[in-house]
Design a binder for these strands. Structure first.
Lengths: 220, 220
DNA sequence: TCGCACCTTTGATCCTGATCAACATCGTTC
DNA sequence: GAACGATGTTGATCAGGATCAAAGGTGCGA
């Protein structure tokens, strides 16, 4: 179901999407159930998305089904903005996810007007590029253990180093992000045995990092 | 040795760098010998570079020397432009290389003025991002043979499908680009045996692709 | 609340690509 | 043009991570 708000943020700094648009473009909210697709590779880019709660994976597939996840998007993150006329990857909700959406056309139009609009856009793309550069180094040259350690530190960082970290994605998702398979489970167990991570409660998706410095020594 | 030209292109479309600058910024030329560094990771970005002839590798290192090459730059390519205050990777000449250089400060300044300047910059960054996205898929999910086939097709494409293709980089460079090692040599030999590539002349860096479609079937 | 589908861990084995090594060849320098 | 270091190929062996498989465990949906 779609919720029209038409409200534009009064405090643009709290609201990246509205800040980019310059407060003149209406946004809506939308909710996706776990596992549903927000857009597919090749689709015409219609909306830009910002996560309110939940999480999203963006990925590309090879013809035989091999999957590479580019990135995980968490609350506050923006994604889906394209310069060209087709999405270069697919996006799916990892869990129930609420997003704010805005028409690309409106956003791009209003940014062309506003002073510094394209600059904000440039900053966004540059951040994405930096993440991709780091990830190429990880995928090309790091060992399985180093990749898993790096992943945990990345998620920890992006969740502002919480006491208990929540992973919205499955082990297979993590594997497809890190270019691995079941090895992810094995390395997580190894880190648990070394007391560099602890599983919290009954689920395997909540965990704490009792020794971040120790963990960081495993990342190359 | 440094050659001052101060000439600005009369035909901006032939001259990407001058086009970006809007013909008001002076450029110089500079020559690097094989193996020399243009800039290092962490250096302050001073110049933007465009290759006149030769080739350059850009790469990042892990502390123990493992290397990931982000990209190879060929004649016409621009690189080295940074938004932040430090280069995020190093750049070295693969062979004797002549470049046109322009001060980042001048270029960025003149682009801020010129209409559509930031947009050109955005297009440049977006292209780099797209290459990185493709490369993540390759590094995360393709087999050795698929990587080598993809590499040959990429170089062939970027050299406009020449009769005889010239590889300015060593097998080790290719390996560090593809996340492999000696396997590169082995897969090249396999492709030669399948008559999907032929070595030309005495060197192993000149080759032809007698069957591009066949080769493309090896890329996933 | 129950039942089932999915997820995770772990064991056993396999295989792709890494590593180590030897040799040939190339190309650069003197 | 000689000599030597760098580069490239190939063989032999190794190992990291993939794959196949099985057994809980979790949590979601009915």
């Amino acid at each position: 179901m779609l919720v029209r708000t038409n409200q534009t943020s009064r405090r643009p700094n709290d609201d990246h999407l509205a800040a980019l648009a310059g407060e003149r473009v209406s946004s809506s909210e939308f909710k996706y159930r776990k596992g549903t697709e927000l857009f597919g590779e090749g689709d015409e880019p219609e909306y830009v998305y910002q996560i309110i709660f939940g999480a999203v994976r963006t990925y590309r597939l090879l013809s035989d089904g091999r999957r590479q996840i580019n990135s995980f998007h968490l609350p506050g993150d923006m994604f889906g903005l394209e310069n060209g006329d087709a999405h270069r990857f697919s996006a799916e909700a990892l869990v129930e996810t609420r997003v704010r959406i805005m028409r690309q056309r409106s956003l791009l139009g209003s940014m062309a007007d506003r002073a510094g609009g394209t600059k904000d856009l440039l900053r966004l793309v540059t951040q994405t590029l930096q993440h991709a550069e780091n990830h190429m180094l990880l995928l090309g040259r790091k060992t399985a253990l180093e990749r898993v350690a790096a992943f945990l530190l990345e998620m920890d960082e992006r969740q502002s180093r919480p006491k208990v970290m929540d992973l919205p994605m499955s082990r297979r998702d993590i594997a497809d992000y890190l270019g691995l398979t079941e090895t992810v489970s094995r390395e997580l167990s190894a880190l648990r045995d070394a007391d560099l991570l602890r599983f919290v409660g009954t689920t395997q998706r909540q965990l704490s990092l009792p020794n971040r410095d120790g963990l960081a020594r495993y990342d190359a």
